[in-house]
């Protein structure tokens, strides 16, 4: 009896996304679609639109396997909702050999492989899906969580079927949005491209791959080194936003055109990340540019900018405009 129990598979899935893309909802849909005990949880914390977030789902027919409230450290499937995350976060961390990395991207396979090889992942398969294009076509917004689940169904049909997923979506969303998602998701399996690894590597659903104390991670300061624990000395403890590259969060960033600026200062006050750069010139503070490292593309500055008329054409231009990345 005990031996039989060992063989009941345990499915572990991790989702990487940016705040607002629906990574948490994806994990929840996963546990709803699975026929049996399942739990899901986000990486707990305050999240801002665009900040990197992760969420997990743990599923097994054996309740005792999923009774734990631990987070998932060795997923068999890692789903990435936004390919810019591959550069910022180690999306393959702790992955089970023979597992699948599912990426929403329009880039070619070789380019993606090159990025993930930097983190020395184990032998894993890669599946690519251009979910953003599908999402913009069907939903009108870049929300790809349900579509990435469609790709998950393609690479791992044993977890849940497309029908089960569609039922879960119908339960979770209001009818109008659910219908749009259902239409979009049907196109996903055909659009998913799989690049398999060495077929000698067999994926395991029973073994535990967690490395000891990997959830704590040595390298950061310990108790003996924090003599004034609670006081932030920002040169030793991560604190403040100076080093947080919020610039990588958005799809666009603001640029400054000095010729149309009337120096009203509206943008300085509205910017949530203090990205409008100023210099003290001619006895007053003047706006000179935008800090691209921190600009996450909220467009608030563009909205408040009154602009200035072009002397030659008479047309009104704003001093701040949005530029798409890539």
């Amino acid at each position: 009896m005990a031996e039989n129990k060992e063989k009941i598979p345990k499915y572990l899935v991790r989702f990487h996304g940016r705040g607002g893309q629906g990574a948490v909802t994806a994990a929840q849909l996963c546990s709803m679609a699975f026929d049996g005990p399942a739990t899901c949880m986000p990486t707990f914390g305050a999240e801002r639109m665009g900040s990197p977030v992760a969420s997990f789902a743990r599923m097994s027919k054996d309740y005792n396997q999923v009774r734990t409230n631990e987070q998932v450290y060795s997923p068999q499937y890692s789903c990435i909702l936004d390919d810019t995350l591959l550069e910022d976060v180690d999306c393959t961390a702790g992955m089970v050999p023979g597992g699948y990395l599912i990426v929403n991207t329009c880039k070619p396979y070789e380019e993606i492989r090159e990025i993930i090889e930097k983190n020395n992942p184990p032998e894993i398969n890669v599946a690519l899906i251009d979910a953003t294009t599908i999402a913009l076509e069907y939903l009108g917004r870049n929300i790809t969580n349900t579509l990435i689940l469609g790709a998950l169904v393609k690479v791992a049909p044993q977890i849940f079927t497309l029908d089960e997923l569609i039922t879960a979506i119908a339960d979770q969303f209001n009818p109008k949005i659910a219908q749009k998602n259902m239409d979009a998701i049907k196109t996903v399996p055909d659009a998913t491209k799989i690049y398999p690894c060495d077929d000698k590597v067999k994926i395991s659903f029973e073994k535990d791959y967690k490395k000891e104390w990997s959830h704590i991670g040595l390298g950061k300061l310990g108790a003996a080194e924090l003599d004034k624990a609670g006081v932030w000395f920002t040169d030793v403890i991560d604190g403040g936003s100076a080093r947080v590259n919020t610039g990588s969060w958005g799809v666009s960033y603001a640029t400054f055109h000095p010729e149309y600026c009337i120096q009203c200062g509206n943008c300085v006050f509205i910017c949530p990340d203090l990205c409008i750069e100023r210099e003290f010139r001619d006895n007053k503070w003047q706006i000179v540019g935008v800090d691209e490292f921190h600009c996450k593309g909220c467009e608030n500055c563009v909205y408040v900018c009154p602009g200035k008329k072009d002397k030659e054409t008479g047309e009104k231009h704003k001093a701040l405009t949005m530029v798409m990345k890539c």
Binding site: W213, I216, L218, L221, G222, A223
Partner: peptide, 13 residues
Amino acid sequence: DYLGVRETKDKMW
């Protein structure tokens, strides 16, 4: 005692 905290950068308590 406390369990699962770092004593220093490279050692667990």
